[in-house]
């Protein structure tokens, strides 16, 4: 079982949480929580298991950002989600060196949330014009004269 192997591999990394998920309810087989700085190691472990990066996004909560990484596999049905809480003043760590797919996803997160990724080769805006001065998916973003 891939989910067991992933749980075992992630357990070695001493993450905050690694447990089985309720697939029928959430669509996850493995749920994990990690520190953003641990993400490159997590990504390496996932790549070693043959998983691909399905999506990378963020959620803006009042107290912190949460980075959400989804991994899945071509071989076997197993979706892993990794949540990484990020202090709003800190930088996240890029996993582009492990998964080139993350390059664009991280740029998108930077564009929409303003989260910076340490170690990203080319952290520019991707969807909005380069001269935009706002991050639209932050909850404090509202209509102002410059963007309405």
């Amino acid at each position: 079982m891939l989910s067991e192997r992933i749980k075992k591999a992630l357990a070695l990394l001493k993450l905050e949480k690694v447990e089985g998920g309720d697939y029928g309810k959430t669509g996850y087989h493995v749920e994990a929580a990690a520190d953003p700085g641990q993400m490159p190691e997590v990504a390496k472990a996932m790549l070693a298991e043959g998983c691909f990066l399905e999506s990378l996004t963020a959620v803006d909560y009042p107290a912190h950002f949460t980075l959400v990484y989804h991994f899945a596999s071509y071989e076997e049905l197993c979706r892993t989600v990794v949540h990484a809480k990020l202090d709003k003043r800190l930088m996240a760590t890029s996993i582009t060196a492990v998964y080139p797919a993350a390059n664009w996803y991280e740029r998108e997160v930077y564009d929409l949330f303003g989260i910076k990724f340490a170690g990203h080769p080319d952290l520019r805006r991707i969807l909005l014009p380069l001269e935009a001065d706002f991050h639209p998916l932050r909850k404090d973003f509202g209509a102002t004269a410059s963007n309405a």
Partner: peptide, 19 residues
């Protein structure tokens, strides 16, 4: 809660992640 649902579109996997 949160949910992730994937479906196959003509171009590949569409995943809908709702919080």
């Amino acid at each position: 809660g949160e949910v992730y649902q994937a479906v196959e579109t003509a171009r590949g996997e569409f995943g809908c992640y709702i919080v």
